[in-house]
């Protein structure tokens, strides 16, 4: 049988890798990618939990997260395109117009 511990370790590590990517990468696209990794880590947990407790709530939650991920990516990528049009590069550190 699959050890719950291992699943948790896997999803947490995926999550951590995602965070590492989020902070270290300066290209907006890669930030979105690492965001996806974090999401996958979480989805894994949901489904594992649903299986562990034997009911379908986890899977329903998985569906919701899926729609969330999809819409988030859509809007994110639209923004990326617009930014690219204005800045011609996607380096996050140059986008500081919203500072205080």
């Amino acid at each position: 049988m699959i050890e719950t511990l291992w699943v948790i370790i896997l999803s947490f590590s995926l999550f951590a890798i995602g965070i590492f990517g989020l902070i270290s990468r300066r290209n907006l696209l890669f930030i979105l990618l690492s965001l996806e990794i974090m999401l996958n880590g979480i989805i894994l947990l949901f489904v594992a939990a649903s299986n562990l407790h034997g009911n379908n709530d986890g899977q329903i939650m998985y569906l919701l997260v899926l729609t969330l991920a999809a819409s988030e990516v859509a809007v994110g990528l639209a923004l990326v395109i617009q930014i690219y049009r204005q800045q011609q590069n996607l380096d996050v550190d140059t986008l500081t117009k919203l500072r205080g």
Partner: peptide
Amino acid sequence: AKGPLLLATILIAELLMISVQPLEMNSSLV
């Protein structure tokens, strides 16, 4: 990318410590 690396490892360590404690009762997924 030293900073983020350090942060990520600390985070993994903490999350694992959390996950280890309450789940001693090694229930397994069937």
